[in-house]
Nucleic acid binder design. Sequence first.
DNA 1: CTTGCACTGTACCGACCGGTCAACTAGTGT
DNA 2: ACACTAGTTGACCGGTCGGTACAGTGCAAG
Lengths: 217, 217
Amino acid sequence: MTSPPAPTPTHRARGDSRDALLTAARELIVGRSYSAVGIAEICAHAGVRKGSLYHFFPGKEALTLAMLDALYADFEREVLIPGLAGANGLHARIEAFVHAIHAFEARMQAESGQLPGCPFGNLAVEMGTHNPTLRRAIRGHLDAVTAHFRSVLDEAVQDGELPGDTNTEALAEQWLALMEGILVMAKADQDPATVLRLGPALVTLLTHSPPEVPHER
Amino acid sequence: MTSPPAPTPTHRARGDSRDALLTAARELIVGRSYSAVGIAEICAHAGVRKGSLYHFFPGKEALTLAMLDALYADFEREVLIPGLAGANGLHARIEAFVHAIHAFEARMQAESGQLPGCPFGNLAVEMGTHNPTLRRAIRGHLDAVTAHFRSVLDEAVQDGELPGDTNTEALAEQWLALMEGILVMAKADQDPATVLRLGPALVTLLTHSPPEVPHER
DNA sequence: CTTGCACTGTACCGACCGGTCAACTAGTGT
DNA sequence: ACACTAGTTGACCGGTCGGTACAGTGCAAG
């Protein structure tokens, strides 16, 4: 423990260039988009030269992939878990979640002047048609979000707030779809109030889950 | 009628270059995205030289604006009106609309190999944060779609299918948001079946409109 | 002290971006 | 026959894109 405070075998001259690149890529790509942000701008924002970027990552796509992993981890820890587990009852949890998203969008707009919408949904739309690697990675993160939604719904079923035969898997996916749509609209408006205005739709969708018509086949 | 079939006063040597440019821009930009398609590619696809493009349009943005106007007009005539007015009853109309959207996405994927999602939603997401002109134009088209949804809901209220105090304006906006979200998910999946899988959420949302809780204030 | 190696800095690449320009072509009105 | 002009053409512009090549640079182990 008296040795220098570097647990890793590398020397790491000064500040971690890799982390700086990931942070810069996150701020810029989330604030704008994948194709609107160039390698040069990411490097400048991170205070790192291009050669270092290509030492740590094979290219822009790999950097973005790593950035998305870190972004999802933070989103899960800072928004998903506290926003969903904080309140009691399904209705209250939905409202808490909507307000957490609203707060995030409003803060981003205050900081950068732009309302970004959902970073994962944005990338899914942007790269869905011409970058299968990124598309699949994003799809995986969206699935992880759906799993969190589902556990909330399962709890609501156990507490008797939803019918026992509720298809929580399907409903969780619908929840995510509506959330993504709300954020598309908010981005089109560039107004965080749109999140609050459309939020009640989530309550309608989630508390009236199976349309009384049994699934005809 | 023995004169050449050109009713307009201009000479128009051969095929309309302007229309060819609009068609090419539509096919390419809808199939991929604004920034992924270049001027050169649009011109090549239209069989027109770059100089002609800049004769008819001041630039890429103006071309896209005109393309979006034509695209919305066609969408309204070919999908929105027949898809919504074809059936009787709200439930049937929703299902007909979902199937119309599914058919469009499946056809696009069969033709171009890519499932595009909603062209307007895509552009809203792509340009929302850094092209206010395009953003506002798209927002206008989305409003026009909402107006169509609302008239369907108003009819349902008049027919007694929805409560008389239904806020059809708010509900129409929620309808659009959910539809956009469904198309984001379908694009992330690159699978038109996602439209059908999530379609029932529209029925839930639209036939249970105001959560029985009166709007607390 | 010397060697090895992770990391950095800079110059450079070909391709492509949106956009400009002047010269040309071909119908139209007089 | 003439001039006018809408439309067309292809060469060209500066700038930026993602990515590459390679010579340093400084730390750590031998």
